[in-house]
């Protein structure tokens, strides 16, 4: 819908039309599958830490010491924030964010960009929060490697959620050539 406009838009800097539609469609499908896989991988990474913490036991040779730390609700907060950010980012209509005049009124574009900003802020906040939890709860208290894994799993969950959002965004806007050039 916006393809003929962008060809002579003087504001666009990197512009080289993507040649083949069939390859683009294939890339889009693969990208969406990849994004779904990354999403599940992210959540299972963290759930692995949570389940491992729930089933944690003392070492077999020294059964007196209970595990010093467990995964609590604090660990869940960054993941929930990233999840909300992912949902918000993908609920935005991408043609509206692009801001082509004549598509909607200017206030709708402004609102769409604001909501998109909130989504990205939630994702970035989730990532930063997971690093914070890792440092404050696990690294600074110098737990054993076995327990620091909870924090690292949290960080990798949020990184993978962000990667999933990025892959989903790129693969859904393959048909518009502008974002495709940004992705390369």
């Amino acid at each position: 819908m916006s393809l003929p406009r962008s060809n002579y838009d003087p504001r666009r800097v990197c512009l080289a039309p993507f040649p083949s539609w069939s390859l683009g469609k294939h890339k889009r499908t693969m990208g969406i599958y990849l994004a779904g896989g990354l999403f599940a991988l992210a959540n299972w990474t963290f759930l692995d830490a949570a389940i491992l913490s729930a089933h944690a036991h003392a070492p077999y040779d020294d059964p007196q010491i209970p595990p010093p730390v467990h995964v609590s609700f604090v660990d869940w907060v960054p993941g929930i924030s990233s999840l909300l950010g992912l949902l918000i980012i993908n609920l935005i209509d991408k043609d509206r964010v692009r801001g082509d005049e004549g598509f909607g009124d200017a206030r709708a574009v402004w609102r769409a960009r604001l909501i998109l900003f909130i989504g990205f802020a939630l994702m970035a906040g989730g990532l930063a929060g997971s690093v914070t939890v890792l440092v404050l709860k696990y690294v600074l208290k110098e737990y054993a490697e076995q327990y620091q894994y909870y924090g690292y799993a949290n960080v990798s969950q949020n990184v993978a959620l962000m990667l999933s959002a990025v892959v989903l965004w790129i693969s859904q806007s393959v048909s518009g050539e502008y974002e495709y050039n940004l992705s390369i």
């Binding site: 969406i32 779904g36 999403f39 599940a40 692995d48 389940i51």
Partner: peptide, 18 residues
Amino acid sequence: RFLTATVVVTGFALPLVL
């Protein structure tokens, strides 16, 4: 497609986590 990929990865991840 997103949900299918999620469920497939879940199927592989669940035994590993357990």
